[in-house]
């Protein structure tokens, strides 16, 4: 008799536990109010040409670009052959030594991966967390004005001019300039396990002009800070498809503003 009671109690407990407040799909989502974007946000995507799940991440990024527009800025960082990419010295590879260092800096060990606004930490391929951090960054107002222009003063150099202004002092601020390139045709391993030799790679990280962690910039209230950096164009690059992504950040807040501007092509003197 006792065994029967125990058995029935266990079955009842199991049945009771099976009832869930999420049985109805309509109860599974709660709309987030006030998601109107007011600030731009930077998503550093960690990707690889030998990463078969990475094209799925690229599809998500295209969705974000379409929905979030200019508020969303993405740079795709490739590593080396230990990071689901090709060796850095491979002519077909999109990895760079700086890309390897960024993977190490953020402890990236799974691909695809992403860091939002420098401070989210590596989010893995959890797209639900990507969205939550992107939205969090876009609805947070910024008190830093940031503008930049990128041009080619010669046919072999790119120069990026940056202007930063705030009505408050911003101690501990650093800035960096990333060059990225769109429309690169190259190999990519697809989700079905087969390589696509004509995959279009966009937003590919090429170089950080201020080192891996950027440089200090003094932002004094109501005083514009100007910075300018130049670099020689690498033979692998196509400057016609290049952009400069400029961002300012602090350790505590992460990216406080970011802007993307196209590199104006070299104008041959008449």
């Amino acid at each position: 008799m006792k065994l029967k009671h125990i058995f029935l109690s266990c079955v009842s407990a199991a049945l009771l536990a099976s009832c869930s407040e999420y049985d109805d799909p309509a109860d599974r989502f709660t709309e987030v109010p006030d998601v109107t974007p007011v600030s731009r946000v930077l998503l550093a995507e960690f990707t690889g040409q030998l990463c078969s799940n990475c094209p799925t991440a690229h599809e998500k990024i295209e969705d974000y670009e379409r929905l979030f527009g200019d508020f969303f800025i993405c740079v795709s960082i490739h590593g080396d052959n230990t990071m689901m990419g090709l060796p850095v010295n491979n002519p077909m590879g999109l990895g760079t030594e700086q890309g390897v260092k960024y993977n190490e800096l953020f402890n990236v060990e799974l691909w695809p991966n992403a860091v939002v606004n420098w401070k989210s930490g590596a989010l893995g391929s959890d797209y639900g967390k990507w969205v939550s951090k992107l939205v969090e960054g876009m609805i947070r107002p910024t008190d830093i004005d940031l503008s930049a222009t990128a041009s080619m003063p010669t046919d072999s150099t790119i120069t990026v001019d940056v202007r930063i202004r705030s009505d408050k002092a911003q101690p501990g601020t650093r800035f960096n300039i990333w060059l990225s390139e769109d429309n690169i045709i190259g190999m990519q391993l697809m989700p079905n396990g087969a390589p696509d030799p004509k995959y279009v790679h966009n937003g590919v990280f090429r170089k950080a002009l201020c080192g891996i962690e950027g440089e200090d910039v003094a932002i004094i209230a109501n005083v514009e800070a100007s910075e300018s950096r130049s670099t020689v164009i690498d033979p692998k690059w196509n400057p016609e498809n290049m952009n400069a992504v400029v961002f300012v950040y602090t350790e505590s807040q992460g990216v406080t503003n970011v802007i993307k501007t196209k590199v104006k092509p070299f104008a041959k003197p008449e």
Partner: peptide
């Protein structure tokens, strides 16, 4: 505007 909604999963 914006052209999207955001929902949190329960």
């Amino acid at each position: 505007e914006p052209p999207y909604t955001v929902s949190k999963l329960g």
